[in-house]
């Protein structure tokens, strides 16, 4: 993994994913390690994402490294029309690693081709966000004690939700059963179902939550966004069907955990927050340990 860019979750094989999770576990036990003393990590956020940026910057700081960069392209030379290539080449002179978030799909791959230093993709449009996937996997393993043979229920926008697609791809290594709950307009695309078929992975599809998540070990919630619907009436019909309320967790398994990539809008009611089955805030904390692990592996200090 040393010196290799992380653009897509498929850049890591099963063994490499597990190495990251193990190392994240070490950092959770001992979060202050001065491994990056003297190293500089650039965080280039061509579109704002405060949560993801702070998580990365916290990870670098805990490792004793320094951070340079920008949090919004309007305050940088990018707003003066500089190409992505020029920005990356310039910043690579000042840093050992570049973490980037960009609104255009494929931008991280292109950056990794032109950059002399490794790139970590912190989200490229609706395309990929591999560090989110690794932190989701870390959260799953931490709460369930294992990754193998779990029943994973994905709810909401399964069509455009990049987090569910990447998680699906990553979990194929661990023989899960998937339960997809989504409106017709936002159901899991065929290409992912074909991938599951090819790998002999069981999955079920439903339109309503009902009792379909009662056997789940993990409930992965996503936002259902108004702008995803071509017909606004269609959105009005489904917008309240995919809201998780505390009462709906009554018959679920005792070990189940509710995950969500955050920020939420209204898809998880606030009455769920106090339920021990809610895990989305701890999930965010796990993101720091996971990113510490990824950065350390790429910079070759672990």
């Amino acid at each position: 993994m040393k010196n290799r860019s992380l653009v897509s979750i498929t850049d890591y094989n099963k063994d490499e994913m597990l190495q990251i999770l193990d190392l994240a576990g070490e950092f959770e036990k001992n979060p202050r390690q001065d491994l990056l003393h003297g190293s500089v990590v650039a965080t280039l956020f061509f579109e704002p994402s405060t949560r993801t940026r702070l998580s990365f910057e916290s990870a670098v700081n805990r490792l004793g490294g320094s951070v340079i960069g920008f949090s919004d392209s309007s305050s940088s030379s990018v707003s003066k029309g500089e190409t992505l290539k020029d920005t990356i080449l310039t910043v690579s002179n000042y840093s050992d690693l570049i973490v980037m978030r960009h609104p255009l799909e494929g931008s991280a791959k292109y950056a990794s081709e032109v950059s002399p230093v490794p790139i970590i993709n912190a989200g490229d449009g609706a395309h990929q966000h591999p560090t989110q996937t690794l932190l989701d996997m870390y959260s799953i393993r931490k709460t369930q004690g294992r990754l193998d043979n779990l029943r994973i229920c994905m709810v909401g926008d399964l069509k455009y939700g990049r987090t569910v697609h990447s998680l699906l791809i990553a979990m194929i290594h661990f023989n899960p059963v998937f339960v997809f709950i989504a409106p017709e307009e936002l159901k899991m695309p065929d290409e992912y179902k074909l991938l599951l078929d090819k790998n002999g992975i069981e999955y079920h599809e439903y339109k309503d939550i009902g009792d379909n998540m009662d056997d789940a070990d993990i409930i992965y919630m996503t936002r259902v966004q108004r702008e995803r619907f071509s017909d606004p009436l269609e959105y009005e019909k489904v917008k309240n069907v995919y809201i998780l309320r505390n009462a709906m967790l009554g018959n679920t398994k005792p070990n189940v955990k509710v995950l969500h990539p955050l920020p939420r809008v209204n898809e998880i009611n606030y009455d769920v927050d106090a339920n021990p089955k809610a895990y989305y805030f701890e999930q965010a904390l796990n993101g720091v340990f996971t990113r510490m692990a990824i950065i350390s592996k790429i910079l070759g200090v672990k």
Partner: peptide, 12 residues
């Protein structure tokens, strides 16, 4: 054909 693809915005 993806209007949000980097190839449609960068000289590449």
């Amino acid at each position: 054909m993806n209007p949000k693809c980097i190839t449609n915005h960068e000289q590449m």
